[in-house]
Design a protein around this nucleic acid. Structure first.
Lengths: 350, 350
DNA sequence: CTGAAAGCGCTTACAG
DNA sequence: CTGAAAGCGCTTACAG
């Protein structure tokens, strides 16, 4: 291991292609063709080789195969944080399809650090993955964006495949969740209940995901003479702890809010815990909304009104795109956002 | 990609070692040594090479490097289901340390299928990973176990490194959560509250994790004249849905229970949702306990009494073990279980 | 300290 | 249809 200084294992008992060839009494060229299912090998020959290979428990050396120009069987996946249910569910979708396709997945997480994300992408490419999937919001930061774009472009030019989940300012195949539409739906739900003193707790606006969700919310707020710009908004980490922190500050700055819209479920969960600690009834005194519909949203108390995004399906589709041959124009698939009304929202008391 | 029939990318713009060597005016041998930090290269030479490499954006081809016998930089991780918070948090620990070490991680999930797990392990080995970490409970099934053992043994003999999380009947480095002790602690908590009509909802007893947790519970129950054998127990999937299913059946079979112990938090969450639907107050009428302390356990309503296992730390330690040189005897690190009493348990009403 | 050469285990033109 | 040979991009004895 590079990181620990140990060495790769020697070539011990594992059978090589030449072992199979010898045992089957053919050349390694024929053995290779038989095993890869290439045309131009007689059925009987191919059968014999495959039987021998199975007996010997032969599995091709991935590195040799790839180096020689064979097909790749590894895809890379970059997420912000695998411990986060949103990304874990996306990864689950990717891994599920990958297993079915006989592919293996290399996962990196960036810890939400744009620099780290760039490094991870480069590492995956250096590792020779056949495709890379970038999940999670792109960063608004121009400089990083330019570098990521350049890296991915040259990878694409070399025949690599790329798919992204979320908006990335990249002309690559994309699975795009309806962040704007979802933001609009949830904000409309809140205002339609009659709320006018609304607070927002948000992750970093450097994330396109947040930008888009806020955009949708803004339209719904504008419709009743409000708007994000005139709404108390606290920015913090896009996590449960960030949600707590932001909720505390929001209650400080705008103690009279009757609704808090969180930009994702994690932050909403943090907000709920703060409100519980304070003894503030939800939705009795303050309504709370999330976004994503992670699995636990339905099990919170009160169960969380949120916007459902089909995370697993998004991961699966991203891999599908990455596996399909490159098209002239980049493709886009939309992942539907669906408003899920549960128990954490109600009309404000008058 | 193998699965999709596309080909590996041609060797396009990416610089090779020979490009670096030529540019620096040295042989590829010297360039290789300089870049790997091997001894026997003059400082000035090494510096020149590294500068050139950086300018060219050179990154070694992993496949060529590994094939030639260089250090590996990929580790494999097998989990049951990455979408499950328990495994997602373990994976997060592994990825965090891996990134710090400059390593990359290949993740497979088995979907809790022993056969699939075996296949995944073999695939990782075929992919030439330098170490494999198997997270999640081993299976009690003898046949599969034998095959897994054989596969891992020959991998170890070839110089591969293996670490497991949980009990696997394998003589390999192990991070062992205190499942028995945790089971004992939670059951003792329940009986000490005065509960005597207790039900258990469990995942498959073919998992060693469950076996051990039940073992601990049994001792605590025995102490008050009860025991797992005489306790109503329903087995179902080790998931939220399994928890719902099992809770429903348990209420059918033993409607008078005053406490339900779930073998993990996921199942407890399912049970809570069933009880909520039925309008059965928790802990007023029935107390509920979990196991693992996944992040959301504290946010449920009522917040969940459970046993905390340091999942991220477990993943991190498993990688540490896998990265350290093989020892004569296999090592074992214990991950502490800690009883976390929250709001879902109380004395039975009399 | 530096380099020429062999070799890692495959795949794929190129001949036959 | 089958095989001998070159080559993928590295690392590491082996000479000097």
């Amino acid at each position: 291991m590079a990181g620990s200084g140990t060495r790769a294992r020697p070539h011990g008992s594992r059978p090589r292609l030449s072992d199979v060839a010898e045992e089957a009494g053919v050349s390694i060229a024929t053995a290779s063709r038989a095993l890869s299912g290439a045309a131009g090998v007689s059925e009987s020959m191919a059968d014999r080789v495959r039987t021998v290979a199975a007996e010997l428990g032969y599995v091709a050396n991935l590195h040799a195969r790839t180096l020689a120009g064979g097909p790749t069987s590894v895809v890379g996946l970059v997420v912000h944080e695998i411990g986060d249910p949103y990304f874990a569910e996306i990864a689950s979708g990717v891994l599920g399809l990958a297993a079915a396709e006989g592919l293996t997945v290399q996962i990196c997480h960036s810890g939400r650090d744009p620099e780290a994300e760039l490094t991870q992408i480069r590492t995956l490419i250096a590792n020779g993955v056949g495709a890379v999937i970038v999940a999670g919001s792109g960063f608004v930061d121009r400089e990083i964006r330019a570098k990521v774009t350049a890296t991915l472009k040259s990878y694409l030019a070399d025949g690599g495949r790329v798919a992204v989940i979320g908006r990335h300012h990249l002309a690559v195949d994309t699975v795009q969740p309806e962040n704007d539409k979802g933001g609009h739906a949830i904000a409309e739900h809140v205002v339609s209940l009659g709320h006018r003193r609304i607070g927002i707790i948000s992750g970093s606006r450097a994330l396109t995901t947040i930008h888009d969700r806020l955009g949708g919310m803004d339209r719904a707020l504008q419709a009743v003479g409000l708007g994000v710009a005139s709404t108390p908004l606290v920015e913090a980490a896009f996590t449960r702890d960030g949600g707590k922190e932001a909720a505390l500050e929001l209650l400080e700055r705008a103690p009279d809010v009757t609704a808090i819209m969180a930009l994702n479920d994690d932050m909403a969960i943090g907000a709920l815990s703060v409100l519980r600690d304070r003894g503030i009834p939800v939705p009795g005194q303050i309504s709370v909304t999330g976004f994503d519909d992670v699995a636990v949203a339905q099990d919170l108390a009160p169960s969380l009104t949120t916007v459902r995004l089909p995370m697993g399906e998004m991961g699966r589709q991203a891999l599908e795109l990455a596996l399909s041959p490159a098209a002239k124009r980049s493709r886009r698939r939309t992942a539907r956002a669906e408003l899920i009304v549960r128990a954490s929202t109600a009309a404000p008391r008058t």
